[in-house]
Structure formats: C-alpha cells, structure tokens
C-alpha cells in the first residue's frame, strides 16, 4: 500500500535498513510487569553491523524480537515506538504483511541451535520452506536452493535430507544461518549466535557470518555479551543496561573512548591477558529487578561514581561527538572522567 513512499524513504536515508525509535516493551504478567525495554533508539545502514551488548536480561533479545514484531503476546506488549525495516513500519503491519517481510527482508539467527530447529522436519525442508514462501519456487527448486545454502555454510548438500538430531551443535547453527540467509535478507538479527557453541566452533561461525554478510551486503544486528565478538565484527556498538541504551557509538568510540561507567565495568570484568597478575574486577551487585526499576539511573546502585542526583533522576543524554552518545548524569560535572579514561592519560 505505502510501499512507494517507503521505498523513497529508504533512498532518502542513505539506505537506512533499520530504524528503531523510542521502543518500549513490557511483559505484563498477572501480578507484575516486567519492564524489558524502556525507550531504545538506534539505526543501521545497509551492510553495517551494530553490536547490542549487555548482560543477560538487559533487553537485547526483546529488542530483536520487537524488530521482527515477534514479541510473544501475551504477555509481551509493545507500549511505544516505531520500528522501520527497509521502509516497512513493522509495528503497524497486519499479520499477513508481516509474514511476507519476515524471512525475506529481515531474518534472525537464534541463540540455541539445539532447540531452534524443528526436530521432525529435514533441514533441507526447513531451509526450503522460507524459499518457497518468499520466492514462489516449486518444492524441488526450493530444495535445490536449500542444498546450495547448505554448501554455502559448509555442509554437504546431500545432507539436506537429514534431520536436526543427526547434526552436531555447530552444524545446527550453520543450518540456522542458512535458514536465515536463504532469501538474502537485507537485515539479519543474530541473537548470541555462538553462545551455545564450543570456542573453536565459535570462531568458525563468526567468520562465516562475517563472510556471508560481506558477500550478500546484509546489515547485521549482533546481540552478544561478549566484547571480543563485538570487537571482531561490529561497526557500531550499543551498550544496553536494564532495557536502555547507556552508550552508543562506533566501535572505536565505545572501546577506545569509553564514557559510561557500566561500559567501563564490562571491560574491567574481562581478564587482562597482558597482565596476568591483575585481578578481575567484576561489577558489584546485580542487575535491578526489571519489575521494579529504580526511579533514577538503573545502574546507580552499582555505580561507584553515582551521586544522589543519579538515584533521583533519569540520566541525561550527552552527545560526545557526532557518532558517540552516552547517557550518564555524572558528565553534568565537566571535570568528570571515568577511571579507564583517566588511566589512559586523561586528555582524550
């Protein structure tokens, strides 16, 4: 219906593949409401990769599901926000229209390859299914395509007739990737694609995603809690905490010019290989209860720089540079610096 206009919007925005604005998602349960995502905004251009980083429960996966408009309802409710994928306003579309976009324009790789493949269908059928749906191919052609996809992710095409239980974990994830990429989507959401895999396999899978992305020109949202993966794959980084983005910028911005105390905490909790004697410094305390978020900055209770004001008010947005944004009230004091920056000389 509005596709012409939408197409134009895409061109106007330098091929903006994804735009998320002020997304709020709550899970409304009988006795409590889980505030999973509380006003997230970011955007992504064609071929670029953004990393969504944060601890478990930060709202990364919910954000990804919201992009697909797949937040389980009930109990999930998208309270606010607009999500634009390739010009389609995902939250306004009918179920029918969504089904045409999912798998074609945007697709997703899930965290656990063991459970995210249907155990009673052959992997070939599972790949072919989306090809048939979106490209109107006959079954035999779609199945041939499925075999090609398998070859592409490094699995012999002859194994297309086998069932998921006949594959190892890493191969299952490759199948998951093949399913996601079967229709050359413009946007790929990868939800911790390597968490469930052995370290050696992790690297293979990441390399493969990277190669395929480059080959097909797909934009990628990489959801992870692993900063190493972010460093390896991402152009942009959004650090999430308790349903909000607390720091947003290019890879260099966030890694080299870290602003937010939480981001700092994440880095500090990594082991330092060059200095084996150094102690790990985990962030003290736990994530706040998402059903009962504090009034002020959600990170304040664990933040060593926190002031009384931090506990009272939501942090203010501060654009450090054109590409770098941080949400932290501490920077209201112009002399404030976090330790990480200080340690590097403090003149950045």
């Amino acid at each position: 219906m509005g596709s012409e206009i939408n197409d134009r919007t895409v061109q106007d925005n330098k091929e903006l593949v994804l735009e998320v604005e002020d997304l709020i998602v709550h899970y409304v349960l009988q006795e409590e409401t889980v505030e999973a995502v509380n006003g997230v905004s970011f955007s992504l251009e064609r071929g670029k990769t953004i990393g969504l980083v944060g601890e478990t429960g930060a709202g990364k996966t919910t954000t990804a599901l919201a992009i697909m408009n797949l937040v389980p309802d009930p109990p999930g409710v998208i309270k606010n926000g607009t999500i634009t994928v390739c010009g389609h306003k995902m939250l306004d579309l009918s179920a029918n229209q969504l089904e045409k976009i999912r798998g074609k324009d945007v697709s997703m790789i899930f965290q656990d390859p063991m459970t995210s493949l249907n155990p009673v269908l052959t992997v070939g059928d599972q790949i072919a299914e989306s090809v048939m749906l979106h490209e109107n191919l006959s079954y035999s052609k779609a199945f041939k395509r499925a075999q090609e996809m398998l070859e592409m992710v490094g699995i012999p095409g002859t194994r297309a007739t086998e069932y998921p239980h006949q594959f190892s974990g890493g191969m299952k994830q490759r199948v998951g990737i093949a399913i996601a990429l079967a229709c050359n989507p413009k946007l790929l959401l990868a939800d911790e694609p390597t968490t469930a895999l052995d370290v050696t396999i992790q690297a293979q899978v990441l390399d493969m995603i990277d190669d395929l992305k480059r080959e097909l020109g797909t934009a990628l949202v990489m959801i992870t809690h692993d900063l190493g993966i972010v460093a390896k794959t991402c152009d942009l980084v959004a650090v999430m905490y308790a349903g909000r983005i607390v720091e947003y910028g290019t890879l260099e911005d966030v890694f080299d010019r870290t602003m937010h105390p939480y981001t700092e905490g994440l880095f500090n909790s990594l082991p330092d290989i060059s200095n084996r004697k150094s102690q790990l410094q985990p962030i003290p305390g736990l994530m706040p209860d998402p059903t009962n978020l504090p009034r002020g900055c959600a990170f304040a209770p664990r933040c060593r720089y926190a002031t009384a004001a931090c506990r009272e008010e939501q942090p203010s947005r501060r654009e450090v540079s054109e590409t770098h944004t941080v949400y932290c009230s501490a920077y209201d004091d112009p002399n404030f610096q976090i330790e990480r920056t200080r340690g590097r000389g403090g003149n950045g």
Binding site: M68, E99, R102, F110, S116, L117, N118, E129, S130
Partner: peptide
C-alpha cells in the same frame, strides 16, 4: 524455540500450527 524460528521465517500462523507444532 523452533516455532519462533518458523515464524521468523515468515511461515503463516496456520502452517506454523499445522506443519511445525502439530507434527
């Protein structure tokens, strides 16, 4: 999880139930 995978592929809901869930 695999139903979420199916939905993410754009499989229509009735097929999700019939082909993926019921089986």
């Amino acid at each position: 999880d695999y139903l979420r995978t199916a939905r993410a592929k754009g499989v229509p809901e009735r097929l999700v139930i019939r082909r993926h869930a019921l089986k």
